[in-house]
Amino acid sequence: MVRLSPEEKIYIIHGVEDNIREDGRSQTQYRPIEVETGIIPSAMGSARVKLGNTDVIACVKADTFTPTWNKPDEGKLQLHVDLSATASPWFEGRRGEQTSEEITTILNKAYESIKLESFCIVPQVKCWLVDVDISVLSCDGNMYDAIGFAVKAALATTMVPKIVASEEDEGEKELQITDDPFDTWTPNVSNIPCLVTLSKVGDSVMVDATNKEEQCSSFTCILAVTETGKILSTFKVGPGSVQPVTFSKLILEASSIGRSLHSELLSALKKENGLRKREIHGFLN
């Protein structure tokens, strides 16, 4: 994206070390975050998250599939990211598609180890395959964290039509989607992680890097953290290395940061749910 001069980078690096970043934030301060669910009414669940100037939408659609022999009672969660050209002309055409594929691979690995027994309809026969499509409309750094929030918020407000299993004569179960549009179930999101990206800039570690700050980071690590602070997976992106001791510190920090983020996000979703008459703002007003 925008190329920085060496002097600009040094200014940013020293700023992070002194705990006064370019925009005045501290090392552990996130930019203002806005979350709104239900913005794509045609999807089963959707959420838009704005993290500073990073803007992503996540949409949930569920379908059924026959589970494999080694995981007979678990559903599947698949994520797909598309970097829209609206975020940057860099994401136009084939180049954008390729970069999106790379990010999709990282994301799916991060969410791979979640247990999805709650997505089972009839063991060995049918389970839910939940697809989450993410569109990145604007990117000013920290895309992964924003995606993590959007995915969790979308899943937490998803309404999937119930499938009832009825006994047939020969003992074969017949599965039918319920006719009642209000007969839905919402996935349990307590084991859906938040993504916490930590960047080492100079001698210090910080959260929520902007585009400019990302360019000054010598080591960036994305950690999937659960509500209880457990680390589900870790990813390092880009070049750079750290001492093992620093890495252990990073993991501990991510754990406590993740716990706070989960609780803030969930209380915001609860507040949104409690609003009496909620109109969807989306991109208007």
């Binding site: 090392q27 996130y30 406590s256 706070s260 969807i280």
Partner: peptide, 17 residues
């Protein structure tokens, strides 16, 4: 050291825009 750094993240709703 770690306990000191409390993260600050505020989630707002679209209705509070």
């Amino acid at each position: 050291d770690i306990g000191d750094k409390s993260v600050s993240a505020s989630f707002r709703l679209a209705s509070d825009r």
